[in-house]
């Protein structure tokens, strides 16, 4: 029972930055949002070309401290990112609907296949 309660009360730390330019790359993105508060998980997904004008990149960051989430949102929600052609993309920052992140293992397990 108490374990269950712990689980629920855990603060949300995984954030998604949505509606980014579809082809933005990791370095450019991280540069634009630097300095980033300490985080332990990050990945970027490029937009699906098939979606045309509805194609957006998105990035996930898991912050170490829940307090950093609010400043980050304050700073980058609605922040306008530019693609290489100069098109504007107003980003949306919110808690990720799915808060789980992969467990970190000390040893990288190799799939024996």
């Amino acid at each position: 029972q108490s374990q269950k309660a712990d689980k629920r009360e855990k603060p949300l730390t995984k954030v998604v930055i949505r509606r980014l330019p579809p082809t933005i790359n990791k370095e450019t993105f991280l540069n634009q949002i630097s300095p980033v508060p300490p985080y332990d998980y990050f990945y970027l997904v490029n937009g699906e070309a098939a979606l045309g004008e509805n194609s957006f990149a998105r990035a996930y960051i898991n912050f170490v401290s829940p307090n950093d989430v609010f400043d980050f949102k304050e700073k980058f929600d609605n922040y306008v990112f530019l693609d290489h052609k100069g098109n504007e993309y107003a980003a949306v920052v919110e808690f990720a609907a799915f808060q789980k992140i992969p467990k970190k293992r000390n040893k990288v397990r190799v799939d024996p296949k």
Binding site: V16, V45, R58, A97, F98, P102, K103
Partner: peptide, 13 residues
């Protein structure tokens, strides 16, 4: 393992 969470993130998005 991380494939699972990434796919779920993607589906929800």
């Amino acid at each position: 393992e991380e494939v699972g969470t990434k796919v779920v993130d993607g589906v929800l998005e």
